[in-house]
Nucleic acid binder design. Structure first.
Lengths: 247, 247
DNA sequence: GTCAATACTTTGTAATGACATATTGACGTA
DNA sequence: TACGTCAATATGTCATTACAAAGTATTGAC
């Protein structure tokens, strides 16, 4: 199958790496339907030649798309398009970011912003002895005027200043980033349970209504625990969606 | 910080790639605590030299661990250990595999194994016109003798033979793999809702009890839809756990 | 005509060399 | 002392080359 892709020439003066330029061009071609699922790409030597690149650079571009689930490669066979559109890799993002990306314009009510002694669960999650003072946030997140989630976060006190006004304007992760804290890894658990009376009232659901629960521990560049959160979402208005890539 | 790691020499005759051997050694050292979070590794040139490898190979080993969230690199600074233990990357696995890996010994009851016409939802998910005949499976998964999930799967008829006896012995994904079908990409949505009376009875929960829901569309090597499933899990006994890696 | 050995294609792994760029810290000067 | 500059250090990008291994197709023998 020939590839008469009209290609934008690469910009070697750009700070954007060549492999990334190529990967993006391919990704656009796939998303635009120019390379429908099942298409076999030329072999990497040929492609490298077409683009005027070396084979490692071309491989790197292809590898990037393989890892994102757009392409599949098999030795002796070739490279094929698997999937036209990837929702977005599971990534370390916040609810605020997700909603903003979806054009939802989220708002936040800060219910609690104080310092409390850590209980056992919070202590172990943050790697601090129980009883240590930690920042405790409780926030209500709304989208389109409707309550969506109640979020509870615990952070080490010395980490960053979090004024309530700022938290009503921006997401927690945005504020952390602005403070030069780079989140790198997180472990999270997603489950479900029934709403208590208080939770139901807050979220505008019936008592006993099913809620999605998510608890997350997020780590820094340097391995420090930055944040531990336990959140509840209205199951009627929210779900977690992502793309998995195998092998 | 020096690195007097006692290293197993690399096996150049092994079919296991050198970069992977190195990555595993580092991973073990990190998990064993020999390289606690925050440790700065030697620079990659030094490391390559220590192992007797070229820089690209050493880079590849490090890169692998960076992508899994164990290490962090910053240009001009160096490579640091972030996190000692990674739960397990979010991967394209089946409930059966997950339970087996956790040592739970799952069992399966096949409730329905038949061919039905696809309704609208199933049709669009599988990319077939509504009304097309598709294989319909309904299975009850138990762990430790207790019901855990009810799973409904829809598959194209021509894909593979799925005898009920085989489905009681093995997981669906195992059977697909055995038939030479390589799952590559999947998109899934995790939510929650209340159990209907029938569902509650089947799973041994009270009516209205919160359930975790997961629907997944899984794709082949070549981009074909292999399977569409809508599953419900007892929230009291199951949750989704994974590690996210940022940036 | 069938089956097995072989050749070819394509990706996978690895080494070597070169230059670019971000970061830190030290040094020197105002 | 404060600030800017520069050097040292580390990772990031890219090219070139060679060989290994897997999968497919072809060819040849029986």
């Amino acid at each position: 199958m020939p590839e008469p892709l009209l290609r934008v020439p690469l910009d070697r003066t750009s700070p954007v790496p060549l492999y990334f330029q190529v990967a993006q061009q391919l990704e656009h071609a796939i998303e635009a339907g120019a390379l429908p699922p099942g298409t076999r790409l030329d072999n990497e030597i040929q492609l490298a030649d077409d683009y005027g690149l070396s084979r490692p650079t071309m491989r790197r571009a292809i590898q990037y798309l393989v890892e994102r689930g757009l392409l599949v490669r098999r030795r002796g066979v070739g490279t094929q398009v698997v999937h036209a559109k990837v929702k977005r890799q599971v990534e370390l993002s916040s609810l605020y970011d997700d909603l903003t990306a979806a054009g939802q314009r989220p708002t936040t009510q800060v219910l609690v912003n104080t310092v409390v002694p850590a209980d056992g669960t919070v202590g172990t999650a943050l790697g601090l002895p129980a009883g240590t003072a930690v920042v405790f946030l409780e926030r209500l997140r709304l989208a389109g005027g409707e309550p969506l989630a109640r979020m509870r976060n615990y952070l080490p006190t010395e980490l960053v200043e979090l004024p309530t006004a700022a938290l009503e304007e921006r997401g927690l992760y945005q504020l952390l980033r602005a403070a030069g804290i780079h989140l790198r890894v997180a472990t999270q658990v997603v489950g479900a349970r029934a709403a208590t009376a208080t939770e139901a009232r807050l979220l505008g659901e019936a008592r006993g209504a099913p809620l999605l629960t998510m608890s997350r521990t997020a780590y820094d560049d340097s391995g420090r625990v930055v944040e531990f959160g336990t959140h509840i979402y209205r199951a009627s208005r929210y779900s977690f969606e992502h793309t998995l890539v195998g092998r």
